[in-house]
Design a binder for these strands. Structure first.
Lengths: 241, 241
DNA sequence: TGCCCGTCAAGAGCACTGCTCACATTTGTT
DNA sequence: AACAAATGTGAGCAGTGCTCTTGACGGGCA
């Protein structure tokens, strides 16, 4: 394990810095190609051309096209996570509703601005590509952990409605899964609310995906901002916030 | 407009029948390749190989790779629509709840059985490919129209709750969009409920997409059936059914 | 019957892709 | 200065979508 990590940038030889810079350039160019042509159209050769280098040279820095995809995946997760964090942190800790809404809006804004990268993260899996869980799980769970954190904080503050209509019982098998999540994340939210949280999670991304992926027709909804705001408000109520 | 439609199968020369059969074979093989390698990996040459014919010959029957994608899109929309219709029709007309649940389950079942085709319909758009609206809109709207139909029938029968907590006002711009939808589809459902219907629509597909696209971790949820049932139940309540 | 034209298959070719490998060059260290 | 590691080069393989020319077949018409 002697990867040229970011931490190694401290005491680094000029070579290492140049190498890190090149990798960063490759990611930057890859990001641009991803935005322009989508994940399936991401071409190492094209990146090499933009880098002003012969195609095989890129393989000195990036193991394969899939490896570049992984780097872009982590890069995108990181940027989305940062933007969500910034949006949420801009509001007081006890403004649970506001924080939830800010999180949803931040996800949507980023998705609309970066549709190809959003598609890479939340769209159909790239065929033949399997993201290495040990590298992508942590950055990939930032948003949902943040959302759960808001729910948990609200619950501990008594700001999460205990009973929300309609009362739907949580079957035992599902309750077991949710209990495991509670334990792992150390959250106090009871299972019924946590289950609703999962629904809200999938629903927020479902709404964003529909918009970004063009599932609404071209002119079915002119007032997309209002639509999303409405959806967020209803979802807020669904989780009892 | 002299396409060799299915209607032309009646009075057809042997030529036309042979041609229709070949096109059907291409779609069948394309479906298989789609399932195995995804939309981006769909290769006309591979289909040609399986068909036992040289690659260029396929272009006699299918204009381009995108054209084949369109055929597969329509094919998939059709199959999903048929399965949803069958599932819904299996229940009495006035069992609105049951029909809604059946619709959701049918979508999920089909999606889990045909993940690649589901991804083609509801996943990230294939880069560089634009579905021809005049051919895909009608089959692509069957499921949502069916869902709206259930809501509408329930409303007309007085089985749709007028007020659902939390009461969220529908902003004017959104109301205008919804009014246009009401007019076009000829539904009686008032705007607030229709707005919730949109949320339910996106949420159902959001939940299915999360599961099909592997957004839940590998082992976060063992009880996926129960999870989806729970989500459907809550969504049912959200729309007031 | 004989011809003609539309349909069809074949194969070469273009430009692109990911990736590998042998070789050359640059660079840093001894 | 000498050596070795890091880096860049270009050829090459196998695959892709798609176009174009060539040739064969067969159904309808004179």
């Amino acid at each position: 394990m002697d990867l040229p990590s970011a931490a190694a940038a401290k005491h680094s030889t000029p070579r290492e810095r140049a190498r890190a810079q090149t990798v960063a350039d490759i990611i930057r160019l890859g990001r641009r190609h991803l935005a322009l042509h989508g994940a399936a159209g991401l071409s190492l050769r094209a990146v090499a051309r933009d880098l002003g280098v012969v195609s095989s040279a890129v393989y000195r820095y990036v193991e394969s096209r899939d490896e570049l995809l992984t780097l872009l995946l982590i890069d995108a997760y990181g940027e989305l996570g940062d933007e969500v964090d910034t949006a949420v942190d801009a509001l007081p800790e006890d403004d649970y509703r506001g924080r939830f809404l800010a999180l949803g809006r931040a996800v949507r804004q980023w998705a609309l601005r970066e549709p190809a990268r959003y598609a890479l993260l939340f769209g159909s899996p790239v065929p033949g590509y399997q993201a290495p869980a040990e590298r992508t799980t942590e950055p990939g769970t930032r948003v949902i952990y943040r959302m759960v954190g808001i729910f948990d904080a609200a619950y501990r503050a008594g700001a999460l409605a205990a009973e929300v209509a309609p009362a739907v019982v949580v079957p035992p098998a599902l309750a077991a899964d949710l209990a495991a999540i509670r334990a792992e994340l150390g959250v106090a939210v009871p299972e019924p609310a946590l289950a609703r949280g999962v629904l809200v999670w999938t629903s927020v991304f479902g709404a964003v995906s529909f918009e970004v992926f063009g599932q609404y027709g071209a002119d079915t909804f002119a007032a997309r901002d209002e639509l999303f705001e409405h959806q967020l408000e209803v979802l807020r109520g669904v989780v009892g916030l």
